[in-house]
């Protein structure tokens, strides 16, 4: 890629990547559209209730939703509207898809960002702790935790958390976004919200905590023997300072990378966790839309998630570049 450094080059690089993303997004739309349109089953059936409908009524509904046109015609029309920033109109919800998704997006982001922050924090602390005494009991424990976290399905973990903390112990709510009965305000509202978030965030973050722990540990072990670390030690810096200041700085790169590149898996995980906990986010909307055959909503969510993944990857690359001066973009 382009040689040179500095914000200017970085900007150009970002721009280039964005331009390159355009055909990619186009591909995403076409693939998803064809896949969904060619699926067996008629969305008009889902739009009509369970009753013997006269054919002229069926045709009227079909025309109303533009489903009387051929697939290529519909694809062209869809592409045209997407370019104008219009993701279409939901069959079932009779609302613009974008409005529908945006309403839910905040709640999904709340879940995901809390997860990323928690997973990163705990993962880094555990990883550093393990790396300080490789092969000690602490290390073994952290590594074991990491492998377990990587193997336990989040939806099952969610079920078990509900069983233990909501059903058996009764400490935390079994699901939902917040209490409905009491209208909390101020700090109480924050606490109420937090109580509802604990279990879903735990279920969702376990896997990423595990990944971050593993990565932090491995990256630290790798750099701790590098020359500049040895030099720092030689200068008489305390082991703690060496670890946190020099080691972690170097280890930051793979950590950023893993969070960035795992983003689409966090999205998938949140769809599962939202379903288990009845969290009213985008994942839940997607799940509902499958059963109402709400094609525009499904396409819209797939598209938005794909764009988000592209952007997060781009931000990850830029963050990587900023964190590591050796990287040339």
């Amino acid at each position: 890629m382009s040689a040179g450094r500095g914000t200017k080059a970085l900007g150009a690089y970002a721009l280039e990547r964005l331009v390159n993303a355009v055909p990619l997004v186009l591909g995403v739309i076409v693939v998803n559209f064809l896949l969904i349109s060619l699926a067996p089953g008629d969305p008009v059936t889902a739009l009509i209730g369970e009753f013997p409908a006269p054919p002229e009524y069926v045709e009227r509904v079909r025309a109303q939703y533009g489903l009387d046109q051929s697939v290529p015609e519909r694809l062209v029309r869809y592409l045209g509207s997407v370019v104008r920033g219009d993701l279409g109109f939901s069959f079932a919800n009779r609302q613009p898809v974008l409005d529908l998704v945006v309403q839910r997006l905040g709640r999904t982001m709340l879940l995901m960002l809390t997860t990323v922050v928690l997973a990163t924090f705990v993962g880094v602390v555990l990883g550093v702790w393990a790396a300080r005494r490789p092969n000690s009991a602490v290390d073994g424990g952290a590594t074991g935790f990491a492998l377990a976290g990587y193997s336990i399905p989040e939806f099952w973990l969610g079920q078990i958390l509900i069983l233990v903390f909501a059903v058996w112990l009764g400490w935390l709510p079994a699901g939902g976004f917040r209490s409905i009965r009491a209208e909390y305000v101020g700090l109480d509202a924050v606490w109420d919200q937090a109580r509802h978030m604990i279990l879903p965030v735990l279920a969702l973050s376990f896997r990423y905590m595990a990944i971050t722990t593993r990565l932090t540990r491995a990256s630290l072990l790798e750099v701790m023997n590098a020359d500049y670390i040895l030099a720092a030690r030689a200068r008489g810096l305390s082991e703690r300072r060496v670890l946190w200041e020099h080691g972690l700085r170097a280890a930051a790169l793979p950590i950023i990378t893993v969070i960035g590149y795992n983003f689409s898996f966090i999205v998938a995980g949140s769809a599962l966790v939202e379903t288990v906990f009845g969290w009213p986010g985008v994942g839940r909307l997607m799940y509902d839309s499958i059963f109402t055959r709400d094609y525009p909503v499904l396409l819209g969510i797939l598209l938005l998630v794909s764009i988000t993944v592209i952007l997060v990857n781009l931000v990850t690359d830029i963050a990587y570049a900023l964190a590591d001066p050796r990287v040339r973009y």
């Binding site: 990619l24 995403v28 089953g41 689409s264």
Partner: peptide, 21 residues
């Protein structure tokens, strides 16, 4: 480019839709 495309489309979501339909 095709590989990238497959990496970007959320795998689980697409699998869910395809298998459901």
């Amino acid at each position: 480019r095709i590989t990238e495309l497959f990496q970007i489309i959320p795998r689980f979501v697409l699998a869910l839709i395809v298998v459901a339909f």
